[in-house]
Simulated assay, not measured.
Amino acid sequence: MIMIPVAWIVVVAVVDTFLPPHIHLGPLLVAAPAVTPSFGGPRTVGLVAALAVIAQTVIGVLRDPDELLSANHEAQILALIVVGICLVVFCAVRERRAKELEQVRYVSEAAQRVVLPPLPKRLGPLHTAVMYLAAEAEAQIGGDLYGAARTASGTRVIIGDVRGKGMTAVSDAALLLGAFRVAAHRQAPLDELVAYLDRCVRWDVVEPGEKGGFDETFITATVLEIPDRGTQVRMVSCGHPPPVVLSGGRPTTMNALRSAPPLGLGELTDPRYHVESFPFEPGDLLLLYTDGVTEARDAAGTFYPLTERVTGWTETSCDALLARFRRDLLTHVGGHLDDDAVMIVLERPAASRP
Rank of each mutant, 00 (worst) to 15 (best):
L287H: 03
Y289A: 11
S38H: 10
V205T: 15
M131L: 14
L175H: 02
N255F: 13
V10G: 04
M131C: 09
S70Y: 03
A350V: 07
T168S: 13
T44W: 07
G166Y: 02
L101V: 02
A49N: 00
A188H: 10
L263Y: 03
F303T: 11
G26P: 00
V12K: 09
D339T: 02
E67A: 12
E136R: 15
D291I: 10
E276M: 01
R156W: 07
P261Q: 03
L197F: 02
H73V: 13
G213W: 08
A221G: 13
A110M: 13
A139T: 11
V48M: 01
R297I: 08
A300Y: 07
D144T: 06
G249D: 14
M167Q: 12
V310R: 13
F303A: 10
G301A: 11
P33I: 00
K99Y: 04
I158H: 10
E216G: 04
I219T: 11
G154C: 08
A139Q: 09
L246A: 14
Y273F: 05
I159F: 03
H336F: 06
T331H: 14
R105E: 15
R96W: 12
L246D: 05
R105T: 14
P251Q: 11
T269V: 13
L268T: 07
L286A: 08
K99P: 01
A195W: 00
P208V: 08
R250A: 15
F218Q: 02
L78A: 15
L145T: 09
V244T: 13
V15W: 01
S277Y: 02
V93N: 11
H73P: 06
A323P: 08
H185A: 13
G143R: 06
A110Y: 00
Y196H: 14
V194E: 11
S317P: 01
T290N: 10
R229P: 03
V88P: 00
